[in-house]
């Protein structure tokens, strides 16, 4: 770098030099970010090595899983599935008006679709577990707050994906419906809905996959389902039961994922 000062700087040369300098600054910034986050979280490799023997102990205690506990796990697991299903349904229904209102080719008014999109963005920043904790405070313990939390959470996902799909549809039918003088409801029903429905169903199934995973942990804040059992068993240090719950959750998640992926492949 020093040398370039003594020679008249060649154009190409200084461009490469600039790029290099930018890379150095980026690397420095990343290293600083890394160091800061280590300090802030009080991370130490020593703690980790120290914890490693604990980890090993824990894994040993988790095997073999307590198979007899499976009978206790199945009813809350079914509850979890119910919560995911009903939550997704509520979300899917709520998502329809939001998706239509925020698609710029359905409602062309800027003052309409920007605020609605803003609300959707806001909803999606709040994690489902926080929503569940708030709904537990309102409705009390049980699966009901979990269902509402999942409903609002999945509404955000489905509405966003659907409005993006809606904006990508073929404008031909839309213009045709305008040309024959359809009112807004007919216009949406005959030109938008037939084009978007397969996408919409696919997004609902996708949200169901996410919700099954989410529902499995909502019990940690008292919102029903299998999550409560993690708390109970971990609290009593019954690690063999914990591993039974984990295996059961994994099986259900994988099964739902498989069915949903197959259905989605058929749809699109």
């Amino acid at each position: 770098m020093r040398k370039s000062l003594t020679h008249p700087p060649h154009k190409e040369f200084s461009r490469i030099n600039m790029k290099k300098r930018k890379h150095i600054w980026t690397t420095l910034f990343i290293i600083l970010l890394f160091a800061w986050s280590i300090r802030q979280t009080e991370t130490s490799l020593l703690d980790f090595i120290h914890g490693f023997s604990n980890m090993f102990d824990l894994l040993v205690q988790m095997f073999p899983p307590n198979w007899a506990y499976f009978d206790n796990v199945i009813p809350p697991m079914l509850d979890t599935l119910r919560m995911a299903l009903l939550g997704t349904t509520i979300g899917a229904i709520l998502a329809i008006p939001f998706a239509l209102l925020s698609a710029s080719n359905v409602f062309t008014n800027k003052w309409l679709y920007y605020p609605v999109r803003f609300i959707l963005n806001l909803v999606r920043t709040i994690p489902e577990l926080l929503l569940a904790a708030i709904f537990v405070a309102i409705l009390g313990l049980g699966p009901l707050p979990g269902i509402f939390a999942l409903g609002i959470f999945s509404m955000g996902i489905i509405a966003k994906l659907t409005y993006e799909a809606t904006e990508g549809i073929d404008p031909g039918p839309l213009e045709a419906m305008t040309a024959v003088g359809a009112n807004k409801i007919q216009w949406i029903g005959y030109s938008v809905v037939p084009q978007v429905t397969p996408y919409y169903i696919s997004f609902v199934l996708y949200a169901l996959e996410i919700n099954v995973r989410a529902a499995a942990i909502l019990g940690l804040v008292g919102a029903g389902g299998i999550g409560e059992y993690y708390d109970k068993t971990l609290g009593f240090l019954e690690y063999d039961k914990v591993s039974t719950i984990i295996i059961c959750t994994l099986l259900v998640v994988v099964a739902i994922d498989f069915v949903s992926t197959k259905l989605r492949e058929k749809l699109l």
């Binding site: 802030q40 979280t41 009080e42 703690d47 120290h50 942990i217 940690l220 993690y230 914990v242």
Partner: peptide, 16 residues
């Protein structure tokens, strides 16, 4: 979150 629960058992509660 389940991983976090297990890691809390291993390294204690906290950011780590």
């Amino acid at each position: 979150l389940v991983m976090a629960l297990i890691f809390i058992k291993v390294v204690g509660p906290g950011s780590f």
